[in-house]
C-alpha cells in the first residue's frame, strides 16, 4: 500500500507557548485531497489534531491552510500534486493561531462588517413598487467580486497584511467594491470613509498575490486599484466641481 508523509504544525497553548511540527505517515490514494489526509489523521491516528472544515467542496471557505508554503483550500488541493514528496500543512499565515491549524478570524470578521457589505439605499422605495431591476451588463460590473467565499486565503498571501494587520485587506475591499459597483446601491460615500482611510486601499502596494491565490477567481487586486482610481477621480471632481453633480 502506498503511503505519504504529512507534517502538520501543532499548537496547544495549554502545554506550550510555541508551535511544533508533528509528522504522520498515512495511506495514500490518488483521489485524496489534503483535507482528506487531515481527516484521516484526526479519525484514525491522532484525535487531538484540530482543524477547521465544513463543506468539503470549495464553497464554505473554512479549510484554508498553508500547504507546502502556499495558501490553499485544503479540500481542493490534491495530494497527488505533491506525491511522492511530503506535504507540510501550516495554519493560514499572518493570523493568530488558536490551536493547531485553527486561526483566529475575528479581525477579518470585524473588517467585513466595517465595509457594510449590504445594499444601502438613501431612501427605500415602497414594497409595492417592486424589485430594483438590473441589466446583465450592470450585473457583470460586480459579479466576479461577489464570488468571494471569505476563506481569507488572500490575506495569507498578502505581505502588506502580514506586516500590518490594521490593513483592511483584499477580501474586505473587494466586497466593498462589489457593493459600490452594484447599480442598486447608494452607499459609496459611507464605504469611502473606510476604504479611503489610511488602513484602506492606500496601504496596498499592488503585489497582486491575492488575485493569484484566490480559489474562486475573484480579483481583489483589481478591486483595490479600481477603488483607488475611483476615489482619486471623485476627490478631484469634488475639488473642481464643489457644488456636486
Amino acid at each position: 500500500m502506498s503511503t505519504i508523509k504529512i507534517t502538520v504544525t501543532r499548537y496547544n497553548p495549554e502545554t506550550s507557548s510555541e508551535p511544533f511540527t508533528q509528522s504522520y505517515t498515512i495511506p495514500y490514494k490518488e483521489d485524496m485531497v489534503v483535507l482528506d489526509a487531515l481527516n484521516y489523521i484526526k479519525n484514525h491516528v491522532d484525535g487531538t489534531l484540530t482543524h477547521r472544515w465544513s463543506c468539503r467542496m470549495g464553497v464554505c471557505g473554512s479549510c484554508g491552510m498553508m500547504v507546502n508554503g502556499d495558501a490553499k483550500l485544503t479540500c481542493a488541493t490534491f495530494l497527488r500534486d505533491y506525491y511522492p514528496g511530503e506535504v507540510q500543512v501550516d495554519p493560514l499565515a499572518h493570523f493568530p493561531v488558536i490551536r493547531d491549524l485553527v486561526i483566529d478570524m475575528s479581525d477579518f470578521m470585524d473588517k467585513l462588517l466595517e465595509i457594510k457589505p449590504w445594499i444601502i439605499r438613501s431612501e427605500e422605495k415602497p414594497l409595492e413598487e417592486g424589485e430594483y431591476l438590473q441589466s446583465p451588463d450592470e450585473l457583470n460590473l460586480y459579479k466576479q467580486f461577489s464570488m468571494c467565499i471569505n476563506c481569507m486565503i488572500c490575506y495569507s498571501a498578502c505581505p502588506v497584511y502580514g506586516h500590518d494587520q490594521s490593513f483592511l485587506g483584499p477580501a474586505a475591499i473587494a466586497l466593498a467594491h462589489r457593493y459600490n459597483m452594484d447599480s442598486r446601491d447608494e452607499g459609496q460615500d459611507q464605504r469611502a470613509e473606510i476604504i479611503g482611510s489610511h488602513e484602506g486601499i492606500w496601504e496596498c502596494t499592488f503585489v497582486g498575490e491575492c488575485t493569484r491565490v484566490c480559489p474562486e477567481h475573484v480579483d481583489p487586486a483589481a478591486a483595490i486599484q479600481r477603488s483607488k482610481v475611483q476615489l482619486t477621480k471623485e476627490y478631484f471632481l469634488s475639488w473642481m466641481w464643489p457644488w456636486g453633480n
Partner: peptide, 14 residues
Amino acid sequence: QKSPPEDLLYRPHM
C-alpha cells in the same frame, strides 16, 4: 467578534 484571550494565541511573525 470575540477573540480568545491574547495569552492563549500564538502570533506568527513575518
